Computed example of a mutant assay.
Amino acid sequence: MEEDKPSTARDDGGSPKPTNEETKTQNGEQAEEADAQRSGFRRRHSSTSSEPTKMEGSGEGKGVTPPEEPPRKRFQIPRKTRDKKALQPISSDSREFEELLKILHGSYLEPNSKILFTYNTAQLIHNEFLEKEFTEKRRQLKNEGRLDKELTESYGFLLIDKSQVHNICERGLHVGHSRLTTLGKPSMGVYLSRFADLLQPNPLEPGTTGTVFIFKVIKGKMKLVYDNFKNNQESHLGNGTLDPAPKHECHILKNMNAVNSLLSYRAFERTQYYFYEYGFDEILKRPRHVCPYAVVTFTYKTDPTPRQSATPMSASVPFTFDRQNGRYLIFNVYISKEIYHFTQNLNFCVLKYLIAFFFR
């Protein structure tokens, strides 16, 4: 039998017509070529337009690239200078200034001082290290079982030179700043005044200006000290004076409350606080329970009212004060200030006979 050969269909022009298999093959090759062309176009398009597309952002299809942003700088916290860290000036109409005035006025020995002292400027002191140690000292005393009255915060005052402000603000008050030896060796503790209007041994002259430091203090356990003025005259180096007492934080004079006038005998020395701190077996150079709080400047004015004597006896004694020589003139006789203050507590007749006996 003859095998059937596939006949090739011819069109009217006599050319053979492709079969179904050949048509499918040609269509597949054309589709592959078209896909290759489209993929190549996409690759070329993406490579050329990728950067503008990223820059356009939300401006879709507009083709306008925004200006380039400047490079961002690394953020750095500004450092505060030492002055800004330690001292904060406050205005005279602020609430902080009013609080300072309450502290100062509440610490006067004589009420009349309110009209004699004018405070010009004030600055609060911020020292995180000293404040932290002050708090730590208070916590330590509390853990030792100290009484609440020993943990109470109060204030002490110190008249200083203006050049010492920054040093005390940054480092605190160190031992050895004072020459007083009334309550203890100055090389082992610090001295502060109890009263804000009793800042130096001699009375303030009208028109005097000065700088006063206000310290927050914790008195802790106080040791009462007897008068030791005779031995105090021997030396200013602390010879013969008391050492700091263990398990104590402060020395005060036993009859401190007997001082009731700025003109009392040795009123300044007798109203001092003496602070110290033991660290193991040695004295620390800076007591932690004495912390700088504020610094103010003042002007001392003239007293508009005549000063009344501390005792009725002295009011009947006619006297004048010679500022140049530092002596009192009583009954036309010059005597020293020490003798005058000593005789304030004596009877007028006794004073009269003493003067007549010693100066006849």
Rank of each mutant, 00 (worst) to 15 (best):
M1L: 01
K5E: 09
P6Y: 10
A9S: 06
R10W: 03
P18G: 01
P18A: 01
T19D: 14
E22L: 01
Q30R: 12
A31K: 08
A34F: 14
D35N: 09
Q37T: 12
S39T: 04
H45T: 11
S49F: 13
S49H: 13
G57V: 02
E60R: 14
E60F: 15
E60D: 13
G61S: 12
G61T: 05
K62P: 00
T65S: 12
P67W: 10
P67T: 02
E69G: 01
P70C: 08
Q76R: 12
I77P: 00
K85W: 06
K85I: 12
S91T: 09
S91I: 06
S94E: 08
F97R: 09
L100H: 08
L100D: 08
I103V: 12
G106D: 10
L109Q: 10
L116V: 11
T118L: 08
Y119L: 07
Y119R: 02
L124H: 01
N127L: 09
N127Q: 07
L130I: 07
T135E: 09
R138F: 00
Q140T: 14
L141K: 04
G145W: 04
G145F: 01
L147T: 07
L147W: 06
L147A: 15
D148V: 07
K149L: 00
E150H: 09
L151G: 03
S154P: 00
Y155S: 09
L159Q: 02
Q164E: 12
H166Y: 13
H166I: 14
N167E: 11
C169D: 04
R171E: 00
R171I: 03
G172A: 01
L173R: 04
H174R: 13
R179A: 15
T182L: 08
K185A: 13
M188P: 00
G189S: 03
V190R: 06
R194F: 07
F195M: 08
F195H: 07
L198C: 03
L199S: 02
Q200E: 05
P203K: 11
T209C: 14
I214N: 01
L224Q: 15
Y226W: 12
Y226S: 11
F229I: 07
K230M: 03
N232F: 08
G238T: 05
T241I: 01
L242K: 04
K247R: 12
L253P: 06
K254G: 04
M256D: 04
V259I: 15
V259Y: 07
S264P: 04
Y265P: 05
Y265N: 05
R266I: 00
A267K: 05
A267G: 11
F275P: 00
Y276L: 04
E277G: 05
D281P: 00
E282L: 08
I283P: 02
L284F: 08
H289L: 10
H289W: 02
Y293N: 01
V296W: 07
T297K: 03
F298H: 03
Y300E: 04
Y300P: 03
D303V: 07
P306N: 05
P306R: 09
A310W: 03
T311H: 10
T311I: 09
S314A: 11
V317D: 04
F321G: 06
G326I: 10
V333C: 07
I335W: 10
S336I: 11
H341W: 06
N345E: 11
L346H: 02
C349L: 15
C349N: 15
C349M: 14
L351K: 02
K352C: 10
L354F: 14
I355L: 15
A356E: 15
F359T: 06
